[in-house]
Amino acid sequence: MRLHLRLFAGIVLLLAAGASAAGELVVVVSAHNASPALRPDQVAAIFLGQSARFPDGAEAHALDQPVGSALREQFYQRVSGKTEAMLKAYWSKMVFTGRGQPPRDAPDSIAVRKAVADNPALIGYIDRDALDASVRPVLLLH
């Protein structure tokens, strides 16, 4: 019986460790971008089209993950509290009233990282495992 309990406890710990590591998102800018660390509300303002500038005044353009991806859902839930359905309604209204266009999206974290690394005006979010020296993290989302 003790062996079963230890085995069960070990499996639970492994699953919990894997779930927490898989859920870490990093908001990144180019390594050549001098923008300081950002707060979630500042990141949300850029991604929701409410701001086109980094806090230091430099131009900012958001780059999204694909619609329906788990990273995208996690990101928007964490920085803005919006679900995918809420985002769709938000952008429909913004586009219809002429107040904005949603960010363009890239196919995955690697594509986001490469595009952001090449353009200091871009900001994106990636899985922490895709992070390298070509980009600089400005916000970690657990």
Rank of each mutant, 00 (worst) to 15 (best):
V26N: 03
V27D: 03
P36Q: 10
A37W: 12
N33W: 06
V27C: 06
N33G: 01
A44W: 09
D41I: 05
Q50V: 06
P36W: 13
R53Q: 15
P55K: 02
A52E: 14
F54T: 01
D41L: 11
F54A: 00
L48N: 02
L38A: 01
S35F: 13
Q50N: 12
A34C: 10
N33I: 01
A44H: 11
L38H: 04
V26R: 06
P40W: 05
V43H: 00
D56S: 08
N33E: 14
P36C: 07
F54C: 02
S30E: 08
R39P: 06
A34V: 12
A34Y: 15
V27E: 04
F47Y: 07
V29N: 04
S35G: 12
D56W: 13
V43R: 00
S35C: 14
G57Q: 10
R39M: 13
P40N: 10
H32L: 15
P36E: 12
I46R: 00
S30N: 06
A45R: 05
S51I: 02
F54Q: 00
I46W: 06
F47G: 00
I46L: 10
F54Y: 11
F54D: 00
A34D: 15
V27Y: 04
A52V: 11
A34I: 10
A45Y: 06
V26Y: 08
D56F: 11
A31Y: 14
S51K: 07
A45G: 08
N33H: 09
D56Q: 09
H32V: 12
